[in-house]
Design a protein around this nucleic acid. Structure first.
Lengths: 194, 194
DNA sequence: AGTAATTGATTGATCAATCAATTATGAGGG
DNA sequence: CCCTCATAATTGATTGATCAATCAATTACT
């Protein structure tokens, strides 16, 4: 039986799985490798996760909780949004997508093979939530006049695509010039010239 | 020994590999499955591709030739570029990224696991070529006055990221409304409001 | 007839999952 | 503080399944 989520060892195994799955994909990651990386024995992995599948599923879905909180926190104070705050939000999003490299890589691994994985539904609803959040921002920005006339849906989808693609295509997360460029380009998707 | 590239059977096997690799990844695609999909026997696959690795490598890199031609063709008549033509080019890019779903999915599979694959170098140089092409467009557009002042490098990287992300994140290539939205958003990355 | 192409059974390697044996933990009693 | 014993956690050898690659036999081609 799988153990509680709070154990130190569970977290070690989870992090090891996250690292190796994000680097080598599902099949090229062996339980033996995960065990070594986590500093536990082969058998112990199965004490905390019943199957390799369940470990992988955990690596894909559990980080969504933190991502969601990160977005929701801002969603509450959306009525008083200013352009300055929007710029801050975009900065945070770009930074988050580059900092949470492993978490997003495994998500992209799943999204990239929709015929293979069922986790899709959870990820789909998260994506919908996110684009809805962006749409709300665009509507408020237009109402308040600090955003030009736009199709909010187009901005939402375009902005999510942009963040995903930036993370997928560019590995060098230490490159400040690059991330700054992405922040400028992200602003342009909202119709704000730089 | 692997056979010449011109055979009908080689093409069938190649297309079968492209389909299955793009859907299920490298390891979950078996030679048995490829053979069935291609309508040949297990052994025949090895007549045309020495190893599974080589078949995969072919699926990742061979489509680059056509992609490159597609870009180059336009690169020749770059000096006479107009805004109208730029809009056409963007339309073509978005359409291509959605039509060539399988080809781009396997490329994204490789890009997403840089620690695992060496094909990266070929893909890297292709990406550099592409972003350089976009940078040239931005420089000319600014000189001719139909593009606002921009950092060409930022636009190049942002535009590539955007196309990749759109392809990765959205599966429904029949959705004209969606692709039209992406075309509008892509224009915004060049500083053109919609 | 002679050469090239095709076939699929066989082999050997890999690896997830199981489980019996071992080790650690900690509660209760002296 | 130490000892006992029960329970929980840990371990890795074993098992069975999967699959890439080989190759001897068969078939097609010229």
């Amino acid at each position: 039986m799988a153990r509680a989520r709070s154990s130190k060892k569970r977290e070690d195994i989870f992090q090891a799985g996250l690292k190796l799955f994000s680097q080598h994909g599902y099949s090229k990651t062996t339980i033996k490798d995960v065990a070594e990386e986590a500093g536990v024995s082969f058998g112990t992995v199965f004490t905390y996760f019943e199957t390799k599948d369940q470990l992988f599923h955990a690596c894909v879905t559990e980080p969504l909780v933190e991502f969601r909180e990160h977005i929701m926190e801002i969603r509450n104070r959306l009525e008083t949004l200013t352009l300055q705050q929007l710029k801050q939000i975009i900065d945070q999003h770009v930074d988050m997508f580059f900092e949470k490299e492993r978490e997003i890589r495994v998500i992209q691994y799943v999204i990239g093979q929709p015929e293979r994985f069922q986790e899709m539904e959870e990820l789909d609803s998260f994506a919908n939530e996110f684009t809805q959040f962006i749409q709300d921002i665009v509507v408020i920005g237009m109402k308040k006049g600090f955003l030009p006339n736009s199709n909010p849906e187009e901005v939402g989808h375009g902005y999510l695509a942009f963040l995903m693609g930036a993370r997928l295509t560019y590995t060098d997360h230490k490159n400040v010039q690059l991330t700054n460029g992405f922040k400028n380009q992200a602003l342009r998707l909202f119709g704000i010239g730089v």
